[in-house]
Amino acid sequence: SRKDILLACPMNMHPQTDPDKTPQEIWEDFSLSFTPAVREVVQFAKHIPGFSSLSQNDQITLLKAGTFEVLMVRFASLFNVKEKTVTFISGTTYSLETLKNMGMGTLLETMFDFSEKLSALELSAEELSLFTAVVLVSTDRYGIQNVKSVEMLQDNLIKALRTLVSKNAPGDVSRFTKLLLRLPELRTLNNMHSEKLLSFRID
């Protein structure tokens, strides 16, 4: 049901839904829950060197397409692979079994898989920040007006990331490649997440 899907999102501050609330009200509560995180993504984007030089349309288009991916990276640590639990932003921790009963299936498993691979890379705060910037500018290009500018920005950020990653772990040449391989996984996760959202529209 609609309520089940809402309950299962880690960005939902109110997983215990009031049965008296209408779907519209539940949706509004959910929106209020994730709005601060989205605003943080926008603030983060503003600090990416070169991002603010893109046209307003292209900034918004990248953020629309990439916010989920950025949040997935940012909140990957909420997924405890060892304990098989997820901590929601409300602070409540749920077991994998409970989450599956809430309706989280393949998407949840893919999120766990991603989180495990990302944490295995043991990125420094600086690396994680730069990687997150790369994630945002590497998102779907649909609707971008000046693709060349976005590609230039992406190239610059990837070069900076490669330099940083190589400097931090000079003996591990595959580390950068392993990091870049997370990008298509994020795209897949984004698509899976979008499908969930589309099946859940409230007029």
Partner: peptide, 27 residues
Amino acid sequence: FSDPASNLGLEDIIRKALMGTVEERQE
């Protein structure tokens, strides 16, 4: 429509956050 971001009202949140805090203060 078939835009998940619009479905969430994401564009509105992004646009306001991007344009600064003036609109947010007015809310």
